[in-house]
């Protein structure tokens, strides 16, 4: 009996010892995890990478030439900033979501930069073609004016057309200046407007000529 009691006590002590050791290990591991999470640092490398891509997009004038893509990148960047701030305020920090948002911002910014380059090139070509077409339309209208039938009735109209064409020449010059300063949108709009109006004058003069040719003489 005495032997049996001693054995039981020894087993109980061993068991308690084993249990304590397990708890110690668990506590240590938990402490390490908590310490690791609580001391997690903001993903600065990811932030820098995303910011660099955003800067590249800005350099490529993405705000103008790839507005939707740039807005998506900007929104992702703002969301990532907000998430980082939120995590910074917590005792236990987790930046996984912030990293995801930063990756998205980086990707969208890269897309915005690429799209902006392509769109800018397209806008440049469009503006260039519009200016050339406007110039030809203006010269054609001027030519029509120089050989327009001159009558008592038409004289005032022709003087007005002449004055209008002078104004359009000025507008076309402004379009050229806008093109030179890479404001392709303004250049395109001005050139298209000049082309449309000059063509309208050329058509009116041509129409007047046809009408005159078809008119029967007055008695």
């Amino acid at each position: 009996m005495s032997f049996s009691t001693t054995k039981t006590t020894r087993d109980t002590r061993r068991h308690i010892h084993t249990m304590n050791r397990r708890w110690n290990i668990i506590a240590t591991v938990a402490l390490v995890i908590v310490a690791a999470v609580a001391c997690a640092k903001a993903p600065q490398e990811d932030v820098d990478g995303a910011k660099a891509e955003m800067e590249k997009a800005r350099q490529a004038q993405a705000e103008t030439f790839a507005a939707n893509e740039y807005q998506a990148a900007d929104q992702a960047m703002s969301a990532a900033d907000a998430e980082i701030q939120a995590q910074n305020a917590k005792w236990i920090k987790n930046y996984d979501k912030a990293k995801e948002l930063l990756a998205k911002a980086k990707e969208e910014a890269a897309k915005a930069a690429t799209t902006a380059v392509a769109n800018k090139e397209q806008a440049k070509k469009d503006a260039e073609a519009a200016i050339a077409a406007a110039d030809t339309a203006l010269q054609t209208a001027e030519g029509n004016l120089k050989v327009a039938p001159m009558t008592k009735d038409s004289r005032a109209d022709l003087a007005l057309f002449k004055s209008d064409l002078e104004t359009y020449k000025g507008t076309l010059e402004q379009a050229r200046q806008a093109f030179a300063s890479e404001d392709y949108k303004k250049a395109l709009e001005s050139a298209n407007s000049v082309k449309e109006k000059a063509t309208s004058i050329a058509d009116q003069l041509e129409e007047a000529k046809k009408k005159r040719s078809g008119a029967r003489p007055r008695a």
């Binding site: 392509a118 030519g143 029509n144 058509d203 041509e206």
Partner: peptide
């Protein structure tokens, strides 16, 4: 990107040809 570039070229070519088509008779008349 290549598809987008092709679409842009197509649109530019279409417009340039349309412009030329309408401008030529006016110049010929002149």
């Amino acid at each position: 990107q290549a598809g987008a570039a092709r679409a842009r070229t197509r649109e530019r070519a279409r417009k340039a040809l349309a412009d030329l088509s309408t401008a030529l008779p006016r110049a010929a008349s002149l």
